[in-house]
């Protein structure tokens, strides 16, 4: 794949270089990531699949900057990541909306932190509420929303700061299959509309093949990349197409090795 560092309009190019990460468990080092190397182009949609314990969520935490204790380097547009930043947004599996704030107030938190003027905050919150299809629920509290709606609000909260990269940590994992299929389409629409780079961790191989430009397969103990498979199928993709199924099975085989 093509990757050109230093080019000014290449916003959102991520380079993961020889990243390893260990936790101390009972005085012994437990390696969760080993020698991760991956380049992600601006505007790309990459999925990461793997058995639980393969460190895929840990990798997202490193990229978003919640954890900065690791070996190797993670570079965003050539600059080393030193903690959370406005250039990256994240959606967790549990929506993590603050239950004491309305949907609109939850979404504007990041803008408030960045000291964006109030009228601009309101404009961008309204824009993103419309983008995720939550019009009319601005003043609802999270407990009044369904799981799918709460996750849409969480996506809006992550996007409102206009990040270059949107990290998705099993964002649809807790939803029922109908809502899930619907939100997959929504994610694709948002991705096409905004051109944001998306990196999604998922358990669901079909979801990964359906959405992504490339699928990264990880193996556990220690967590490492075992395969990177491009998905060269035109969108919208047909889940029943022979090629789709063949690719899905290749990934499943890579997973069960």
């Amino acid at each position: 794949m093509s990757l050109s560092h230093g080019v000014i309009d290449d916003q959102g190019a991520l380079a993961i270089r020889a990243v390893s990460k260990s936790y101390q468990v009972d005085g012994r080092a437990l390696q969760v990531l080993k020698g991760i190397a991956l380049d992600i182009a601006p505007g790309e949609f990459v999925s990461v699949v793997g058995a639980s314990g393969c460190g895929k969520s840990t990798l997202l935490r490193l990229i978003v900057g919640l954890d900065t204790a690791y070996d190797g380097a993670i570079l965003l547009d050539g600059r080393r990541i030193e903690g959370p930043g406005p250039d990256r947004g994240i959606v967790f599996q549990d929506h993590r909306l603050f239950p004491w704030l309305t949907v609109a107030d939850n979404i504007s938190l990041g803008l408030e932190a960045a000291n964006v003027p109030i009228p601009e905050q309101q404009r961008r919150v309204a824009e993103n509420i419309a983008l995720v299809g939550l019009d009319g629920f601005e003043n609802a509290y999270p407990h009044q929303l369904s799981g799918g709606m709460a996750q849409r609000a969480a996506i809006a909260r992550a996007l409102v700061g206009e990040p270059e990269i949107l990290l998705l940590d099993e964002p649809l994992g807790a939803l029922d299959s109908l809502t899930r299929a619907y939100l997959q389409e929504e994610l694709l629409r948002i991705w096409r509309q905004g051109g944001v780079t998306m990196i999604m961790v998922t358990h669901d191989v079909e979801e990964a093949v359906y959405l992504s430009d490339r699928v990264v397969v990880m193996e556990p103990r220690p967590g490492r990349i075992s395969a990177v498979l491009p998905v060269d199928l035109p969108r919208p993709r047909d889940r029943a197409a022979a090629e789709f199924i063949r690719l899905k099975e290749r990934i499943l085989r890579a997973l069960s090795r």
Partner: peptide
């Protein structure tokens, strides 16, 4: 989980207290 959201969104101290 909420504390991490505050970190990711880079809350300023006042926001940390009130939000």
């Amino acid at each position: 989980a909420y504390v991490e959201v505050a970190r990711v969104l880079r809350f300023v101290p006042r926001q940390r207290v009130t939000r």
